[in-house]
Amino acid sequence: MDFETVSAGDFGTALTGIGLNILVRDVPAQVAFLEDIFQMEAHRVSADFAIMTYHGQIMQLHGDHTYSQNPLLGLLPETPPRGAGAEFRLYHTDPDAAVERAKARGAHVLQEASEKPHGLRESYILCDNGYAWVASLPLAQFPKGDPS
C-alpha cells in the first residue's frame, strides 16, 4: 500500500489486527519526535493526521481537533500529563542511542537505559504529550558489562 496516495477509505478498510491511534496536540511536532528519537517513518503528515511506520507496524496520529465529534475528546485532560499509564514499547530501538537522541533534542528522559529482569535493556522517554515511549533491545545484544 502506498501510504502517500491511498484514500482514507482504502486505508481504513485495509487495517487489521490491533490498531494504535494516538491523540496529540501537535501532529508535526509528534512526528518529529518519533522520527528523531526512534527512527520511525512518517507518511501523509498534516496538522490533522499522520501515518507512522515502525518495523512494519502501523500507527496513526490524530490532532485533538479532529476528534470534535468523538466522545473520547471530552476525557482528555486540559493540561499535561495526558498519557499517564500508557507506554508504547519499541522493541527494535537501541535504548542508549534513543536516550542520546532524546537529550540532544531536549526531550524528557524519564529513565536512563538499564537492564531489566525480563531480559531487556530499556529506556523511558516522555514526549510533550506525556506518553511514555520505551526503547528496548534484548540483553543478549549487549556485551556483558558494556551496554553501549
Rank of each mutant, 00 (worst) to 15 (best):
F3W: 01
F3L: 07
F11S: 09
F11P: 14
G12Y: 12
L15P: 00
L15Q: 11
T16V: 09
G17P: 06
G19H: 08
G19S: 14
I22C: 10
I22R: 01
D26A: 13
V27R: 00
P28E: 04
A32P: 02
A32W: 06
F33R: 01
F33Q: 01
L34S: 01
L34R: 03
D36L: 01
D36I: 08
D36H: 10
I37T: 13
F38Q: 05
Q39T: 07
E41S: 08
V45L: 07
V45C: 02
A47K: 00
F49A: 12
M52C: 00
H55M: 05
Q57H: 13
M59A: 14
M59F: 15
N70A: 03
N70Q: 06
P71Q: 00
P71M: 06
L75D: 13
E78R: 12
T79K: 14
P80E: 15
R82L: 11
G85S: 00
E87D: 12
L90V: 02
L90P: 03
L90G: 09
Y91E: 06
H92I: 00
P95K: 10
V99R: 00
R101Q: 13
A102W: 03
A102Y: 00
K103S: 13
K103W: 10
A104Y: 10
A104R: 08
A104V: 06
R105H: 13
G106M: 06
G106D: 06
G106S: 08
G106A: 08
A107L: 09
Q111F: 07
S114F: 03
E115Q: 05
H118I: 01
H118W: 11
L120W: 06
R121G: 00
Y124V: 12
L126A: 15
C127G: 15
N129R: 07
W133N: 07
W133S: 09
W133T: 12
V134Y: 02
A135R: 01
S136W: 01
L137G: 06
P138Q: 08
Q141A: 14
F142Y: 14
K144M: 08
S148A: 12
